[in-house]
Design a protein around this nucleic acid. Structure first.
Lengths: 370, 370
DNA sequence: CTGTTAGCGCATTCAT
DNA sequence: ATGAATGCGCTAACAG
């Protein structure tokens, strides 16, 4: 029924080993023999049996890319970029040579699903795994992740972080590309302060995410430097109380990274502190929701309230007014992560590279009314 | 080095066959034995060898989801939704039971890469493949796709289309979920006509895509019904000339499905026909670019020019003014495709289901100035 | 440069 | 309900 390598060998009048060598290309084979084999392959319409190949070689051509939310362009852009470096351009024949199969796994931000996917990838003996986006700061989960990643690395799977801080015990992994979320957050708030804003609301992401924490810490650094920090501890959720991380700063509201959260958190912020003159959102999507809320309250942007985002997603420049935000080179970072996963590029010194975030000043922020 | 099923068997003092039966669950095993085996699995931290398992069973737990552009939320939403139905919620243990590995493959809209991915998936003996988004209408490519899909189906891979028209010879595949792009396009233009618009510009997608063609056909249907069609043939690119499908309608400009194309095509449209009072875009992303172009020309939306999109992506309601568009239930469709791929849901009668598109009238369209 | 020989780790017959 | 034996299709030594 199904054509095997042996069939090809028989038709090309060579041994199975030779066919294997031609197909894998990493071994000298006489040109004439290769021709004959390739013709047999085409004649028979042969397709390699991946599982058999992986079993024998003890490695597969799968590369996993883990994302928190693939419906969010933040991840889509990185994942797509990584895939361009991994899948290879194809040879146009559709025959598929030594390509890797780059696959995107959507964890939905759930720690359990993240681990499950890693197990699934481990089971497949994946060649590499790219983990994108912020991590969850739950100690138990972090330990489980570290253990799982160590096992993967042990089995020869290359590990790359993209837009994610390195693990505490950051051995084993090839490379970590982290975004300068803290610096970007700081510069964004500095910008608002320099415009004259003193009461700045902050719509933060989920409290347990590193991305959320780092951006918020940058924000608070800027406030503190300007003598504006009214939060008791100066940031961080490690209050040792063990209870819910009650954020004492009334100007900060946490929520998921989506539009709806931006809308509702902004209404809440406006209720709590009607005197805010600017709102900083956890990311651009949240900022869009914030803008809608501000407008629905009958206020204008930026005349009555300034609004800023983070990431500089493609739609942000088209917002009205165009959104002031912090640009992250998502495509470049994703592509680099892809190359690292393929071993096409050397890891950065120390295994960690920090990727700069650039402040993009646009129309949504201005001098406060007052 | 690496723990195998035999190791587990030894530790549990049973035969390898029994361990296999416990793990696959589809065979009677005494409760006490099962317990012992599962404990051994945990003790040894055993992870099934996927390739070996797939080789022996002649089937894998991989499910492929093909998308044109994962950075575009249109695909991200569908793919993410499909994955929720396939990956399973996980059992929270991270141990990964009988889950499938749902993986997203980004073709970048390239026919070659589409075929390559299918070959790769075929090589992996994928359990199912979901193809999302419009197809390319190149006869050679369509034939190649049909042949490839037939082979996949033959090998037991389930095939599902999502937001994609069925193949001409639509056997072999489990199900096709297609969007009513034509109807949606028609109703959108009807809406504009009913507002009083007579000169309507159209920023279309790439001419070779079914999605582009269907939406444009709907548009032209509406024009024709109103006696406004000024295109010679009444739509379609089948002019038999064999040359580039020169679209004689000066009010239609083709381009990729991105923001930049929307911007530039709109400038071109405005140059060609300064008297247009409305612009319909191929999708919401393109519409955003169109809005920017209109504004950059010093015109207001909708007072000077109405703009409409398609898809109703999450950001569209937050555009200013909110974008009139055609809503496609992307999440629901993706989820259903996922269920079909898993065999969790019966295919629609005839294997084809058309999914309705709903007109969303918002602030970006209004009565023309004149 | 090419053929021969062994497994890779597991699922599945058959037995029992 | 469990164990023993066989082979899935391929790659990787090892010869030659």
């Amino acid at each position: 029924m199904t054509v095997t390598l042996a069939d090809v060998a028989a038709r090309a009048r060579v041994s199975p080993a030779t066919v294997s060598r031609v197909l894998n290309g990493n071994y000298p084979v006489a040109a004439s023999t290769r021709e004959r084999v390739l013709r047999a392959v085409d004649d028979l319409d042969y397709v390699l049996n991946g599982p058999a190949s992986s079993l024998a070689a003890a490695t597969s051509d799968l590369v996993g890319i883990l994302v928190n939310d693939i419906a969010d362009p933040f991840f889509g852009i990185m994942a797509g970029a990584a895939q361009t470096q991994i899948g290879g351009p194809g040879d146009g024949s559709g025959r598929a040579g030594g390509e890797k199969l780059a696959v995107i796994c959507n964890t939905g931000g759930s720690p359990e699903r993240e681990l499950t996917y890693l197990t699934l990838l481990q089971r497949q003996r994946a060649a590499a795994v790219v983990l994108t986006g912020g991590a969850v700061e739950n100690p138990a989960h972090q330990a489980a992740m570290a253990a799982k990643l160590a096992k993967l690395a042990d089995a020869g799977t290359r590990i790359v972080f993209c837009g994610r801080p390195p693990l505490p015990e950051g051995d084993a992994l090839v490379a970590a590309l982290t975004f300068d979320n803290r610096g970007g957050g700081r510069r964004l708030t500095e910008h608002l302060i320099s415009l004259g804003h003193r009461r700045i609301g902050y719509v933060a992401g989920p409290p347990e995410r590193t991305t959320t924490r780092h951006r918020l810490e940058g924000h608070r650094e800027a406030l503190r430097a300007a003598g504006l920090d009214d939060s008791p501890a100066g940031g961080g959720t490690a209050d040792g109380s063990g209870g819910p991380a009650a954020d004492d700063d009334r100007l900060v509201v946490h929520g998921p990274y989506d539009r709806r959260s931006g809308y509702e958190a902004t209404l809440e912020l406006l209720r709590r502190a009607p005197d805010v003159t600017a709102i900083v959102a956890a990311n651009d999507t949240v900022a869009l929701g914030a803008c809608a809320a501000v407008r629905d309250q009958g206020m204008r942007i930026p005349q009555d309230i300034s609004v800023a985002g983070f990431d500089d997603l493609p739609f942000s420049v088209d917002a009205v007014p165009a959104l002031t935000t912090v640009r992250l080179p998502l495509f470049e970072a994703g592509a680099r992560a892809g190359r690292l996963a393929m071993g096409k590029e050397n890891p950065p010194p120390g295994g960690i590279a920090t990727i700069a975030a650039e402040l993009m000043i646009r129309g949504s922020t201005a001098t406060p009314r007052d």
